[in-house]
Design a binder for these strands. Structure first.
Lengths: 248, 248
DNA sequence: CGCACCCTTGAGTCTACTCAACTCTGGTGG
DNA sequence: CCACCAGAGTTGAGTAGACTCAAGGGTGCG
């Protein structure tokens, strides 16, 4: 949600742990819910949030069934959320990059409906929700930001939902790539062409609702058609126009 | 979100128009965000909400691209929301029964991302969002309710999202029926076995991400197996256990 | 009565799944 | 330094579930 400033030591520590730390860019992101707050409110916000980490790859930040206390933002690293369905299969429900919020699914619920798992060495900002609600009562701007975050999340979820139906694997994959490119470029700059994937291709396939084999074949096809250069742990973007065309 | 009491005339009018009006039962629903408010706050809530209708079947309550001003609750009738995807195809994103909220997708967004369309003669409660936010600042309870509503919506969206992938048509249909049974029974009583569908089967198929033909065949299969009795404009529930078993 | 619309049924096709084998990579240990 | 191993990813073959296209009911409305 925000990287708290004026905590040099912690940020340094963070940088030592996670080499690909992008947290100092987070403050510029549009979703920073503390944007526009005055000094007193920022102070209050600092008191209800804290940095946690490092989480190792595969380590859980919270678990399905935990009672809900906090919402989170990625400071550095990457996070996936996944839920276990009734029949025991896991479903990846989201990937989160530095500056992005997660854990809002638990708001107003008896229990958190998903696990959050670090994908690499990860630092997160944990924001206690009950005090945040109280602070929102005193800060209309913060309240508005928070509602916006939730609205955006709803909007994205419905978009994903919509995308999941009646859609060829090729289009799903293209949309995923397009989305990821936008998100990573907003962190690292719009000239980036080489994209490292923090998650496994198995996770991506699960997220997209296709078999790993289908994802593999689809990426190969996009590669052969010259849109991307498919790699083991990432991809190179060759023709964003073509990807957009397939994404629709 | 709530049916305002003490407006006998409007409710009467409403009853004349929509015979299956269930709005007087809405006040008992758990999602009533005005629950627990004091008289002064209830008054303020009344001033920022208003009843609108009747909307005729097919009539739009709001349109995709409209600027966001209000959230809504169904008072009587039924509503669907649908979005048009980039390639011009429409995707039904939700059905709403009396007492249920809709339109929260627009919160914090530049434009509302979907159409809301009445499925039969429908009255809705429109709640102006900006004043609602302000009122939330003065009423921690209301604020908490609203956050809960949004959290629940996120949770449901992710659940739907999850359900859309890797799932046989039979299971999707069974889940849809199960969910609908629960919702209608919470309105009309748990002994109900006969369910009228306010939406067309084409809409249901679209919502579930299957072809209308597939939905038709699946319902016939469930009928032949004795779980339901498939009808033109509804269904009779014969074996809820079996439906639950298939739903997983 | 006839038309329109929705739903159902049938036949054929195709996408994506499953299962199985193979490759590649990074890490470990001799 | 290289051989080995485990896990992720890729490729191939065969299958099944769902889609498309097309035609045939049913029901309500003018």
């Amino acid at each position: 949600m925000q990287v708290r400033q004026g905590k040099g030591e912690k940020n340094n520590k963070l940088r030592l742990v996670a080499q690909d730390d992008s947290c100092d860019k987070c403050a510029t992101k549009r979703l920073c819910i503390t944007q526009g707050l005055d000094a007193e409110q920022l102070g209050a916000f600092d008191r209800l949030s804290r940095t946690r980490g490092p989480f190792r790859p595969g380590e859980r930040i919270f678990r399905m069934g935990d009672s809900f206390h906090s919402i989170y933002a990625v400071q550095s690293g990457a996070v996936k959320t996944e839920a276990v369905s009734d029949d025991g299969r896991t479903q990846v429900t989201g990937f989160y990059l530095p500056g992005e919020q997660f854990g809002v699914e638990g708001i107003g619920q008896a229990a958190i409906p998903c696990d959050a798992i670090a994908l690499k060495n990860t630092w997160v900002c944990e924001i206690a929700f009950k005090p945040l609600e109280e602070l929102c009562g005193r800060s209309p701007l913060l309240q508005h930001h928070l509602f916006s975050v939730l609205g955006e999340k709803i909007c994205n979820s419905e978009y994903q939902f919509m995308m999941g139906r009646n859609m060829r694997a090729e289009r799903r994959v293209a949309r995923f790539l397009k989305c990821l490119v936008l998100r990573i470029r907003s962190l690292e700059g719009s000239e980036v062409r080489q994209f490292h994937l923090p998650m496994s291709k198995e996770d991506i396939a699960n997220y997209l609702g296709v078999a790993p084999e289908t994802l593999s074949r689809t990426l190969r096809k996009l590669d052969e058609e010259g849109m991307i250069r498919n790699e083991a742990k990432g991809f190179e973007l060759l023709d964003i126009e073509a990807v957009n065309r397939i994404a629709g």
